[in-house]
Design a protein around this nucleic acid. Sequence first.
DNA 1: GTCTATATCTCGATAGAC
DNA 2: GTCTATCGAGATATAGAC
Lengths: 209, 209
Amino acid sequence: MLTDHPSYTSLSDAEKAILDAALTEFGRAGLPGARMQDIADRAGINKAMLHYYFRSKDKLYEEVLTRVVESFMTSIEAALDSEDTFSAQLRALLDAYLRAHMSRPEVVGLWVNENLNGAPVARRLLGPERGARGPRRLLCWIEDAVREGHIRPVDPLQFMITFLGSVVIYMIGMPMFSTFRPELARGGEEEIRARVDHLHTLFYHGLKP
Amino acid sequence: MLTDHPSYTSLSDAEKAILDAALTEFGRAGLPGARMQDIADRAGINKAMLHYYFRSKDKLYEEVLTRVVESFMTSIEAALDSEDTFSAQLRALLDAYLRAHMSRPEVVGLWVNENLNGAPVARRLLGPERGARGPRRLLCWIEDAVREGHIRPVDPLQFMITFLGSVVIYMIGMPMFSTFRPELARGGEEEIRARVDHLHTLFYHGLKP
DNA sequence: GTCTATATCTCGATAGAC
DNA sequence: GTCTATCGAGATATAGAC
């Protein structure tokens, strides 16, 4: 997740540990709720070192978010490039996206909290200036599929929103969904496959020409 | 939203104003991020009055959440009871659910933040003891539609999750989605209808027998 | 680079006058 | 019921020794 960033290997061990711990804590509690002491404890270092390496809480937050956004965009591109039919690409996207989130549920929390605050940082990172690589790539993918007749005419943005929501909700709402079926929270191979299959079938038939 | 609760009319004006302001602030920032001072300012009363009426921040939070959960369950039942074909009920649910959230986006924030913290309060409110009226009613509705052959065999819980996510994401991600199409954030009649139509068509074809 | 000690600030909560 | 003033906990951030 964080390791995807180009500069990751050039970081010191302390910096890596801090970024990792910060992702966990910011994802859990958001920017205001997270505590520097908790991040330091989780990273196994002294609280003062956080400020030594990353000046302030805000700077640290921005650094974490930047890397997560970068990773998100890379994984979308990888999934799309790995297959060549619409159906297979759809499955690859669902699978990659869901697995990434299951292995690091805090990423969803980070994204959600950022949006609830109006997404000031994410908007800057994904803004038109920077091209919004990942999302735009998704939109083009849907547009192309419509143009080439692989799926029925559909508003690409509407479907992209639905697609993202159907995966993201699985992580967000888990504490409540698992009251209906506790196995879901395990997040094992069986559960992931069931979720991917369900979404793939639903969307595939829902988009058929 | 808050007015649905049976006891609402028996509250004083101050209490109503506090609950309303608290919903906004808790939805924006979550339980830890919200500030009692901000809630007081928004309600137009003194900070000390918050504690006079609702003892503590936690108590106030629980009171707000209780009312929102209650309202959610009532609106689901109303939508299902208002129509009698699966297709019409699906549309009524999408419409009611989306409109409720558009008029009060903070409700989504409240629910999301609660879940990111493991949903301790919501789990108690929706737990098996209390019957989880709303969600269970949704699950039964899908089960029945399968049994009666109106839709293909589908895991009711999986579809319920997808359904909720496809609506909720629209509010959560709006700060980012509106960078691609600013009109979306207006939330006018046109945008709501477009979203409902998109989801209705997608799910209707995705679930056809 | 690392850690202790501490300054500074903000927030939830309460006391007590009216 | 309402408001001012304030306490005390806990947070970010920094100073300064090593």
